[in-house]
Nucleic acid binder design. Structure first.
Lengths: 336, 336
DNA sequence: CTGTTAGCGCCTTCAT
DNA sequence: ATGAAGGCGCTAACAG
C-alpha cells in the first residue's frame, strides 16, 4: 500500500503539500498540484481513513443501529439514513441489535470505538436505560430514531404514533365498531406504548370502555399469538388492530385459524405494513410511517448537532398517513 | 477520553504492561494486573479501536456489502454473517449498494480504507468487473456471496441455483404443464442467469422447446411487468415461475390483473419467497435459499483465508430446498 | 516479569 | 507557496 511519503517523494514535495492537495486545505500552485496528482495516480495511493480519523479525531462516518434491518419499516429508515449520509459524504456503519440489549451495547461500543462522528439509534425493546444514560456522557452525539424516550436529553425523530392511532380508532368506530381486539405487543417499546395510548385516547373520544376491548400486551410473541385466538374468536370483536408488522402476521394468522374472514366478518388494520402490500387480499388498511423521511431527518438532526453541540435537544415527530383500504371497508356490524 | 497513559500512570506501570493486560498477550503478575484493572475501571478507559487497528494493521472487523439488506434473502444472509462474525469476536460493518455499481465501489473503498480484515460481497447487478478485478490486488481477502463469478479468483458461496431450478421444472412438468411463463429478470445477475440455465436444463430434460415458453428477461422491472401481462394472459401458459421475490411480486400482480387465479387457472412457483409466507393465499411453492447458512459459510471461508492467504480459492454451493405448496398442486391442465 | 522506544499514516502548527 | 516536525493512541520488538 502506497503511503503519502511515497507520493511526496515521487512528486518531489513534502508530505504536507500532498496532504493539502488531498484535502484542498490550503493553496498550492497548480504546477505542483499536478505533479502530486500524477504521483497519486501513479502510485495508486489511497488515503488511510483510519490514520486520518485518528489524527483528526473524527471520521466522517456515522453509525446506525437498528433491531432488525430486514423489517420493512427499519429497512426504509436505513435507506433514508444512507441516502442522506451519502449526500453529505458520510459513510454509514450499520449494525443490527436483533432486539437484544446486550448486542445493542456491544454494537454501540464497537461503533463508538471506531470513532463514528455520531450515532443514530433505534433502541432494542429492552434497551438498558443505563446504556442510554452512559451514552449521554460520550463525546459523540446520538439521535434516537423511531423509539423515543422523552426523559432522555437526545435529539429524537419518530412518528406521531399516538395521534395516528387515535385517528385510526376514530375511523373504525365511525364504521360502527364498538368492540375491538388490539394486538399491542411489547409496551416497553416506546413506539408500541404510544400506539396503545392513542388507542385509549380513541376509546375515550368515542366514549367506549377499555374494559370492553381485548387489549393484548406482552413481550412474548408466542404468548400473544395464543391469547389472540380466543380474542378474535369472540363474536363481539368486529375489528382487529395490530400495532406492528410482526403482530399483523400474528393477527392474520389467528383470524385464519378461527375461520373469520376479513373484512366479511371483521375489519382489520395494521401499522407499518408489509413489503409488496399490493399482493395482499384483501388490501389492508395501514398506518404508514414516513420511514425513509425519518431516516433523512435523523441525519439532519445529527449534522446540525455536530455543527452546534450545545443547542438543546430537539424532538421531531413526522406525520403518519392513514391508508384506508378494503380491510376496513364495507362492513357494518350488527347493532349491539 | 482516558488514554493508556492515564491508566499506566494511575497504576504505576508502563503503557506496555497496560497493553499486555488488555490483550492477554504476555504474562503479568496478578498483583500488577489487578492494579491495572482497577485503574482501567477508575478512569473509564476504553481501547481506541482505530489506533489499535492502525498499529496492528488489522481491525478484527469484516465488511459486508449487499444490494438491499431489506430484501428477505439478503436480510437472512446478513444475519448469518453477523452471527458467525460475533461468534469469532469480529465486528461487522454493513453497507448497501442499492444495486448500483458506483455506490458499490464507494462502499468497497470505504470499508477497505477502514481496514476491515476482509470483505464479503454480494455484488450489485451491474458490478463493474474491473472493480472486482482491482479487488484481487488488495491485501484484504474477499468472499463473493450469492452472486458468483466463476472466472474470478475469490472464495465464493452461493446456492445450487441451476440444479434447484431444474428440479422445480421437473416437478412442474410432472404435474402435466407444457407451457410456462418464466420471469427471469436481469440475467447480468449471476444468480438469475443460473436459474435461467436451470430452466433450460429442465426443458431439455422434458423434451420441451424453449421457443414454446414465454421467457422474460431484462434489466427493467417495469418492462418485465408490461411484458408479463400478455404472457400470463396467454391461455397456453399454465404455469408461472418467478426467479426472485421482486419478480414474484410482478408475476402475482400480472396474474391478478389478467384475472387468472392461482392455482385454479395457473400454477405458480417462486424463488426466495416473502417474509411471513404463511400469510399468502394460496401458499406458494418456493425454492428457498439457505440464506442464513450462506452467511455463516461466507464468514468461515473468510476466516480460513485469513489464516491461510495462499490456498487456492474455494467455491461452496449450498443446497436449496424445494418447498411444495398449494400454488402448484391440484391442477391438471387440459391436454394439449 | 516489566519498561523503553520506535513507529503505524496522517494532519497541522510553526517556520520560512 | 512550501517544509519540518510533533504527536494522535497504541503495539511489539528489544532490553533488562
Amino acid at each position: 500500500m502506497a503511503t503519502m511519503i511515497d507520493v511526496a517523494r515521487l512528486a518531489g514535495v513534502s508530505t504536507s503539500t500532498v496532504s493539502h492537495v488531498l484535502n484542498g486545505t490550503r493553496k498550492v500552485e497548480s504546477a505542483t498540484r499536478r505533479r502530486v496528482e500524477a504521483a497519486i495516480e501513479q502510485t495508486g495511493y489511497r488515503q488511510d481513513t483510519l490514520a486520518r480519523a485518528m489524527r483528526r479525531s473524527r471520521s466522517d462516518s456515522i453509525g446506525l443501529i437498528v433491531s432488525d434491518a430486514g423489517e420493512p419499516a427499519f429497512a426504509d429508515m436505513a435507506h433514508g439514513v444512507e441516502h442522506a449520509a451519502a449526500e453529505r459524504g458520510l459513510t454509514l456503519l450499520l449494525a443490527n441489535s436483533s432486539e437484544d440489549a446486550e448486542r445493542e451495547g456491544l454494537a454501540i461500543h464497537a461503533l463508538m470505538n471506531r470513532r463514528v462522528d455520531g450515532l443514530i439509534l433505534a433502541t432494542a425493546a429492552t434497551s438498558l436505560v443505563d446504556v442510554l444514560r452512559s451514552l449521554r456522557d460520550e463525546r459523540a452525539p446520538v439521535v434516537l430514531l423511531d423509539r423515543l424516550y422523552h426523559d432522555l436529553p437526545f435529539d429524537q425523530v419518530g412518528a406521531d404514533n399516538r395521534d395516528s392511532m387515535r385517528s385510526l380508532v376514530k375511523h373504525i368506530v365511525g364504521q360502527g365498531h364498538r368492540q375491538m381486539t388490539i394486538l399491542a405487543g411489547d409496551t416497553r417499546v416506546p413506539t408500541l406504548e404510544e400506539r396503545l395510548e392513542g388507542f385509549l385516547d380513541g376509546l375515550r373520544d368515542a366514549g367506549l370502555a377499555p374494559s370492553a376491548q381485548h387489549i393484548l400486551t406482552g413481550q412474548d410473541e408466542a404468548e400473544i399469538a395464543a391469547e389472540a385466538l380466543p380474542a378474535v374468536a369472540d363474536r363481539a370483536t368486529t375489528a382487529v388492530i395490530c400495532c406492528s408488522t410482526p403482530l399483523a402476521a400474528v393477527g392474520l394468522g389467528a383470524l385464519e385459524q378461527v375461520g373469520r374472514a376479513v373484512p366479511g366478518d371483521v375489519a382489520f388494520a395494521t401499522f407499518d405494513g408489509f413489503r409488496y402490500p399490493e399482493l395482499f387480499r384483501p388490501r389492508l388498511t395501514t398506518v404508514r410511517q414516513p420511514a425513509f423521511e425519518m431516516g433523512v431527518s435523523a441525519v439532519q438532526l445529527l449534522v446540525s448537532r455536530l455543527a452546534d453541540p450545545d443547542s438543546s435537544p430537539r424532538t421531531v415527530r413526522l406525520h403518519q398517513t392513514l391508508e384506508l383500504r378494503e380491510s376496513t371497508e364495507g362492513f357494518a356490524p350488527r347493532p349491539a
